[in-house]
Design a protein around this nucleic acid. Structure first.
Lengths: 203, 203
DNA sequence: CCATTACCAGACAGACCTGTCTGTTTTTGA
DNA sequence: TCAAAAACAGACAGGTCTGTCTGGTAATGG
């Protein structure tokens, strides 16, 4: 039997994901979780606090998924392709509703500090994850730039998939990202070959 | 003296941009525009209709800016660099509040058809704009892929600048995009040179 | 001037929001 | 078993939301 707290977070989370933080009220949450109003406020001091706890939970689950993923045997383009395909699958399952963090950032008042802190720290973590991913693909001095590039493509894809309610932005981002992590090795190779030809000619 | 309708759109637009569609109610809009409730409903049949009109206006202004921009003398990397820099300037001016269309898409109910139609048509237009931009940078068969790449980077940059309340995502996207449109010509040139060297060697 | 039409003011209605509070039930420990 | 503490139920309070409606004012044309 689930703890009441977890039950509320899970129910509220699904509702927030579907309709956004402002689109769901306390009354709907307690009704759907089968918890009383008093029970709710015993576990969360406010709706805002619930949102913070939810985002923290989503972040935790991300961390788990990501670390498992980074430990997998996949490397290079296959790694990136899989990661973007996972986004495609996830969004197809949830009616093209996108990133919980970005969607929540769109609606909260700038002064709501705790929610904003969660959003920012998750995004900072995510940026780092993409840099790690770039490293796992073999990049070193360029890992940060490539990581950022992947981060921005991923974010743009999720945003536009939600806007357009279509998965083409994700499929396209997947191709682009896969090509991106395949490109540098090929370019370096082409450059080496070009240099060798130049040396032959100068002989 | 501005028409009442335009005055409401302008005032509401600024408020929607700042706080999001769900973050601003009719009462605040009429108070800030100095228009009565009756005056409001004489001009707009609903809040939703106001939102549609606002998004249409934002879209119109985009089209205007974009066509002027595409007619400018700028070409290649400078064109792209300027366009991304404009985004940076715009967001700095508005406290890192991002794309009106994406922010609205985050909060509306999936069943609200008219708003959704506006968002989708704007995004389809925007995708095409980036493909046109890629063409103006000299791409032809690759224009669509490069255009999509620019589109996704731009969107990711705006989203993450809002999430992180920082302009680094835009600056980074600007570098990446500028490099992207600079890359292909150099690669094509490198390929031509490689081919020429190969022919010389086979003689 | 008067009648008609268009525009306007703001009270009102009904719905929903978040959080508080009183009374009841359950759990715990002596 | 009993008393105290914790947990729970749901009515209540005060606020805000969107849209309606009645009465008033301004503009127009005969």
């Amino acid at each position: 039997m689930k703890r009441i707290r977890d039950q509320i977070i899970e129910t509220a989370g699904a509702l927030f994901q579907e309709k956004g933080y402002t689109g769901v009220g306390i009354n709907e949450i307690i009704e759907k979780s089968g918890v009383s109003k008093a029970g709710f406020y015993q576990n969360f001091e406010s709706k805002e606090n619930l949102c913070v706890q939810w985002l923290m939970e989503v972040h935790r689950q991300s961390e788990l998924r990501h670390s498992t993923f980074l430990e997998s045997d996949l490397t290079g383009p296959e790694l990136v392709k899989t990661h973007f395909s996972n986004l495609s699958d996830t969004m197809a399952c949830r009616n093209f509703r996108g990133c919980p963090f970005s969607n929540t950032a769109s609606v909260i008042d700038a002064s709501i500090g705790r929610i904003r802190t969660e959003i920012e720290s998750h995004k900072i973590y995510l940026r780092e994850f993409f840099v790690d991913l770039a490293r796992k693909c073999g990049f070193e001095s360029e890992a940060e730039v490539i990581g950022d590039h992947l981060f921005l493509l991923y974010s743009g894809a999720a945003t536009e998939a939600q806007n357009l309610r279509s998965d083409w932005p994700i499929r396209r981002a997947c191709e682009l990202a896969t090509r991106l992590v395949s490109t540098r090795p090929v370019d370096a190779e082409a450059e080496n070959e070009l240099r060798r030809k130049r040396e032959l000619l100068s002989v």
